[in-house]
Lab assay of single mutants.
Amino acid sequence: VAMCDYCKLQKIIKETVRFSGVDKPFCSEVCKFLSA
């Protein structure tokens, strides 16, 4: 469980994407796409 980078809620992380050398955790595909 970690904080989703988009919705800022403590959730089970399903996706982690690396932006500019920094790992960004996301709880769902939706949050990942909305943050892009």
Rank of each mutant, 00 (worst) to 15 (best):
T16L: 03
A36R: 08
V1L: 01
K8W: 01
V30Q: 15
V1D: 06
T16P: 05
V17Y: 03
F19C: 15
M3A: 10
V1A: 04
K11E: 05
K32N: 00
C27R: 03
M3Q: 08
T16Q: 07
L9T: 14
I13R: 09
C4W: 11
K24S: 02
I12W: 09
F19A: 12
V22Q: 10
V1K: 14
T16C: 11
V17N: 01
V1R: 07
E15P: 10
F33P: 10
K14A: 05
E29V: 05
S20E: 13
F19K: 10
K14M: 14
S28R: 00
Q10L: 08
C31E: 00
Y6T: 10
M3L: 02
K32C: 12
Y6N: 07
Q10E: 14
C7A: 02
I12R: 11
V17T: 12
S20A: 11
I12G: 12
V30D: 12
K11R: 06
V17E: 09
Y6L: 04
M3C: 05
M3G: 03
A36M: 15
F19W: 13
C4D: 03
D23V: 07
K32G: 04
V1I: 15
A2T: 02
P25M: 15
F33Q: 11
S35M: 02
K14Q: 09
S20Y: 12
V30L: 10
R18G: 07
L9V: 08
E29S: 06
C7M: 02
M3T: 13
D23Q: 01
E29D: 15
V30R: 13
C4M: 08
L34E: 11
R18V: 09
Y6H: 14
D5T: 09
V17C: 04
S20Q: 13
E29W: 02
S35G: 11
A36V: 06
D5R: 05
V30G: 10
L34Q: 15
T16E: 06
L9R: 14
K32F: 03
L34R: 12
S28D: 04
I13S: 13
D23M: 10
S28M: 04
K8V: 00
V30F: 04
L9D: 13
K24D: 05
C7Y: 05
F26S: 01
L9G: 14
A36W: 06
A36C: 00
A2L: 00
D23P: 05
L9C: 14
E15F: 09
G21T: 07
D23F: 03
K32L: 03
Y6R: 09
Q10V: 12
E29F: 00
V22K: 06
P25R: 10
C7S: 04
C4Q: 03
K24G: 11
Y6G: 07
I13M: 12
Q10P: 11
D23I: 02
K14V: 09
V17P: 06
D5K: 06
S20H: 15
K8Q: 12
C7Q: 11
C31A: 02
P25L: 05
S35W: 08
V1Q: 14
P25T: 05
E15R: 07
V22G: 10
V1M: 14
C7T: 03
D5N: 05
A2W: 03
D5M: 08
F19Q: 13
E15H: 13
C4L: 01
Y6C: 14
T16A: 03
